[in-house]
């Protein structure tokens, strides 16, 4: 997808506008998505790994990896995107491990969140801030 400089700036401005909303109003979306995923169950901190660059050279293509021993599914959210859902990985009986990597779009510096559903029905969560740079060179 070919973002022009202007469109990229607009995306960034959109993200900036979102961060100006009252924290509660915005956080609800992520919370709602997590609640939907967990069915309202308690979510422990840790027990799921999320690898993402501290600084992404371009928000259009940010490599991330998630893993959680014994997880049956891992949901990834990007809290600062216009719509936070990114992907949900469901691991089948022939999964060699509960891990996956992909490349995602981030509309600005924000927290990426991973929530794992464990085989025993419990849930674990982690998050990581990814700084997205806005370069000087539009091209």
């Amino acid at each position: 997808m070919d973002f022009t400089r202007r469109e990229t700036l607009a995306l960034g401005a959109g993200a900036a506008a979102l961060t100006l909303l009252p924290a509660g109003a915005y956080a609800a979306t992520v919370d709602e998505l997590v609640n939907e995923f967990t069915g309202g169950a308690d979510v422990a901190d840790g027990g799921v790994n999320l690898d993402a660059p501290e600084i992404a050279e371009n928000g259009n293509t940010v490599p991330i990896s998630v893993s959680a021993d014994g997880a049956t599914a891992i949901m990834v959210l990007a809290a600062g995107n216009p719509t936070p859902p990114v992907a949900t990985f469901n691991f089948g009986p022939l999964a060699g491990s509960s891990s996956a990597s992909t490349r995602i779009r981030l509309a600005g510096t924000q927290d990426v969140i991973a929530v794992a559903k464990m085989a025993d029905g419990s849930f674990a969560r982690t998050s990581k801030e990814v700084k997205v740079t806005i370069g000087g060179c539009g091209g």
Binding site: A78, V86, G92, A95, S99, T102
Partner: peptide, 30 residues
């Protein structure tokens, strides 16, 4: 991704997945 009809991974993808989607994962080969 399935192997001999059994599931390895099933991914729900959203618009935040980058252009030219890439996935890496592990599969058991029985």
């Amino acid at each position: 991704c399935d192997f001999n009809g059994e599931n390895v991974i099933d991914v729900k993808m959203e618009p935040a997945i980058s252009t030219n989607p890439y996935f890496e994962f592990e599969a058991k080969i029985p």
